[in-house]
């Protein structure tokens, strides 16, 4: 795939190895040292034989915004389920939707991915198409009545982006110009 092959030892990344070992331990439901060592060996083998390009995330995790992001996300999942349930059980004849283009302000691919994933589970939205070069994501908005609803929806997506950037992003400068 890539024009220049990456050396094999570069595919060993410590966070990935730790994560794979953790998955191994959870699968076996046996948290002993020997099992952990064997799981680590399996993780190294998987990373060597099935290499993935290294991730460049440049993250800086901030605990309190991360906690707020998680709590708000769970709340949004509940709210969106209730909204969809109401739309489902009510009359569906006059249901109107919209496809909205949102320009995200973050330069990071990782934040783009996380926002698009989380947006799928918060009220009334679904990522349909994403353009990586311009950081534009097209969302399908569910049960939108008019132009005003479209604008409300756009603001909701941008608010979600702000929360994700506060929790993970390496720089938050580009947020300040949006929020005076």
């Amino acid at each position: 795939m890539s024009p220049r092959p990456i050396p094999r030892h570069r595919t060993l990344q410590l966070p990935v190895l730790v994560w794979l070992t953790l998955v191994w331990l959870m699968l076996w439901r046996d948290f002993s040292l020997g099992n952990a060592l064997f799981g680590f060996a399996v993780a190294v083998g998987v990373c060597l034989f099935f290499p993935l390009p290294p991730l460049r995330m440049h993250l800086r995790v901030r605990p309190i915004p991360l906690l707020w992001l998680g709590v708000r996300f769970l709340w949004d999942v509940v709210v969106s389920s209730v909204l969809v349930a109401r739309a489902t059980l009510g009359p569906t004849k006059n249901l109107r939707n919209a496809v909205v283009e949102v320009n995200l302000k973050t330069p990071s691919d990782f934040v783009l991915t996380v926002v698009a994933e989380m947006i799928c589970l918060i009220p009334g939205s679904l990522a349909v198409e994403a353009r990586r070069s311009t950081h534009t994501v097209f969302f399908h908005a569910f049960d939108v009545r008019d132009e005003e609803g479209v604008e409300v929806f756009r603001q909701r997506v941008l608010a979600q982006e702000r929360r994700v950037v506060r929790a993970f992003g390496s720089q938050t400068d580009h947020l300040e110009e949006v929020q005076p």
Binding site: T88, L95, G124
Partner: peptide, 26 residues
């Protein structure tokens, strides 16, 4: 059950996918 009703009742594919994601995951 609500997710299943949504998948059956909602009029178009993208709306159905909303029913298939949110109540189903919750």
């Amino acid at each position: 059950l609500i997710a299943a009703i949504g998948v059956l009742r909602l009029p178009d594919l993208l709306s159905r996918m909303h029913a298939a994601t949110k109540p189903q995951v919750l």
